[in-house]
């Protein structure tokens, strides 16, 4: 029975430490210190990952046998799209936390995630359009994925605009939380419906990003870039949150002390 007891104790210890960590995250002074050291690590890591991934994808990976070199846009297009979608869920989760437990840090997270997600969505759209020109011969095609990204951009812009429209920022955060939660319920439905809509109107042969197996020499840089974009999202999120915190807590003692120490 001894190992079981040890395991249970370890789980309990892990559990308490996890919950203490989560509780600490809700406290601005602790978060400020924690995020400061995190950012110091994350910034060089992100830059390195992005540079390595970009050079690998642009220069080292072989060209696609059908699309030639234009496929190299995939190394920014797909990561931007993946992280933009994940960013919406981050935002909505923060919104749920803010609605249920009224934690101010969750408001700050949601507020910071919206513009970052909107920019990533815009990047996915623009690179998709540029990719479309050599592939389909036009800048814009009402392809299922591109159309879904466009709607995601509208969802993001709605949250940003709603936040800006409210003068009372606490109310703004709660309104945006309601909106982003409804959006989260809707996103899978939107994606599925756009998918069906597209497959009904287009013959399947035009679909060029099919489920064909991608070669490892092309896949590894793609995975690397996806990781890099995730890091970038977290980095931009933390930096935005820190800038916001410094301003909203300018009257607080802990921040005054930090400023005085520098």
């Amino acid at each position: 029975m001894a190992p079981v007891g040890a395991l249970l104790r370890a789980v309990r210890r892990y559990n308490t430490s996890m919950w203490t960590f989560i509780h600490k995250l809700g406290s601005p002074p602790w978060f400020f210190g924690f995020s400061g050291s995190l950012v110091r690590w994350l910034l060089p890591i992100t830059v390195t990952l992005l540079l390595v991934g970009a050079i690998w994808g642009l220069l080292v990976a072989p060209p696609d046998f059908r699309q030639g070199n234009s496929y190299r846009i995939i190394y920014i297009h797909v990561p931007a799209a993946v992280v933009a979608l994940a960013g919406y869920y981050v935002m909505a989760f923060a919104g749920a936390v803010s609605l249920i437990w009224r934690i101010r840090m969750a408001d700050v997270t949601m507020r910071a995630a919206a513009p970052v997600g909107a920019i990533l969505t815009a990047i996915a759209l623009v690179t998709g359009a540029i990719w479309g020109k050599p592939t389909w011969g036009t800048w814009w095609v009402w392809d299922a994925r591109i159309t879904s990204m466009l709607i995601l951009l509208f969802l993001y812009l709605g949250v940003v605009a709603l936040f800006e429209a409210y003068e009372n920022k606490t109310a703004a955060a709660r309104a945006c939380a309601v909106l982003s939660l409804v959006g989260t319920v809707n996103i899978p439905i939107i994606y599925k419906s756009v998918d069906w809509w597209y497959s009904l109107h287009q013959p399947a042969s035009i679909k060029f990003t099919g489920e064909s197996a991608i070669d490892a020499s092309m896949l590894y840089p793609l995975l690397l870039m996806i990781v890099a974009f995730y890091c970038l999202f977290v980095l931009a999120l933390l930096l935005n949150m820190r800038a916001e915190l410094v301003w909203t807590h300018r009257e607080s003692g802990w921040l005054k002390q930090l400023v005085g120490d520098t």
Binding site: I151, L152, F154, L157, V182, N186, S193, V194
Partner: peptide, 9 residues
């Protein structure tokens, strides 16, 4: 802006 994307499906 808020409701058009939700109306798409």
């Amino acid at each position: 802006l808020l409701i058009i994307p939700l109306n798409v499906p």
